[in-house]
Simulated assay, not measured.
Amino acid sequence: MKNKVWFITGASKGLGLTLVKRLLAEGYKVAATSRDVRQLQNAVGSSSPNFLPLQVDIVDNTSVGDAITGVIKKFGTVDVIVNNAGYGQLGTIEELTDGEARQNFDANVFGTLNVIRNIMPHFRSKKAGHIINISSIAGFLGAFPGWGIYNATKFAVAGLTEALSAETASMGVKCTIVYPGYFKTNFLLQGSLKLADSPITDYKEARDLETIHDTQIVGNQPGDPEKAAMAFIKLAENENPPLHFFMGSDAVGMANTKIGILQSSLTANEELSKSTDY
């Protein structure tokens, strides 16, 4: 397993950085990307020959393609992809401009698609590989006021990964959607989380949730990034990894809540639902 080569996007902070450090400590070969390669090198703090830091614009397909070509040239192959790059965008559906929404989709969705398109020829040729796409519990349970666009990007990541899993089933390529809950990283801090440029005070629920994040959640997240890194490694070592993986007790709890709501709705409306058949 230690011979596997990992390719991780968005690796200069957060879960991506913790995973890179753990993999290098465990003896894996790791290629990692960031918009600022010097920041990435300083954050990782390693000059190991097993580490390949890459400056990549995840939204630029050519930049992504060149990076993957460089990894294969250096290490001979890629075995595990972790699409981790992205950022949080706060703001209600009305508040966010078209530009704000599209930028979030560019980073969180189209960046992931760029990596998938560029790695799949390699994975198809060797009939092996594992693509781990980072969604969020907000990509399964969307009822967070003020997070609608971000939620939509993470629902999109989950949906495209389900389709990719079905498309590659006969090729030996495995796919996993990871839905993290709250982890004690810098995700909720300035620089990783963008606010709406033009907030509207009428949206009380959204403003209240922003306050809760600032005053109650930041610093009290239940998830341990080091344990998350070990969970990623275990997923990659699993011969039959799950398509859906909820990471953290809070994520599991929220997922069960959503499943319960769906089951209740299905049961309560079953007669009306089936009344539309011929």
Rank of each mutant, 00 (worst) to 15 (best):
P222G: 14
L189M: 13
K21Y: 04
H130K: 11
N84T: 06
D224S: 14
T185C: 11
S170K: 13
T276R: 08
L40T: 02
I8W: 01
A158M: 11
E94G: 01
A85C: 05
N114R: 02
I149S: 10
L90S: 11
A107D: 06
V78P: 01
Y278D: 13
E270H: 09
P121Q: 11
A231I: 13
V82K: 02
Q39P: 00
H244M: 07
A152R: 07
V78Q: 05
N114M: 05
A196C: 08
S198P: 00
D214W: 03
N84Q: 08
I134F: 06
V78G: 02
V252G: 00
I149L: 13
I261T: 12
I149V: 15
L243V: 11
V178M: 09
D60P: 00
L164T: 07
L52I: 02
E270M: 11
Q221F: 08
Y203H: 08
D202R: 05
G219S: 11
I72M: 06
P222R: 14
Y28L: 04
G260Q: 15
F246Y: 14
D208F: 02
S192H: 12
I259S: 12
E95L: 02
G16D: 10
G191A: 10
G172S: 09
K154H: 10
L23K: 06
F140N: 06
A255G: 06
F232R: 07
S12C: 03
P222L: 15
L113V: 15
S170W: 04
F51G: 01
K154L: 05
I177P: 00
K204G: 00
I131S: 03
A67D: 02
A156R: 07
G129R: 04
F123G: 02
N104G: 11
A166R: 14
D208K: 06
K29Y: 12
A156F: 09
L23Q: 07
K13T: 15
I200D: 13
A236T: 11
F183M: 12
L113N: 03
L19T: 09
G253T: 13
V56E: 01
G223Y: 07
F232K: 08
M247P: 01
K204V: 14
A268P: 00
A206E: 08
F7L: 13
P49T: 09
Q190P: 03
N238K: 14
M230W: 10
G99K: 13
A32N: 03
F155Y: 15
K127L: 06
N104I: 09
L262N: 15
A128I: 03
Q55A: 04
D57A: 00
A169I: 15
T215L: 09
Q263L: 12
L188K: 05
A206V: 04
L19G: 06
D224I: 08
G65N: 05
G159K: 07
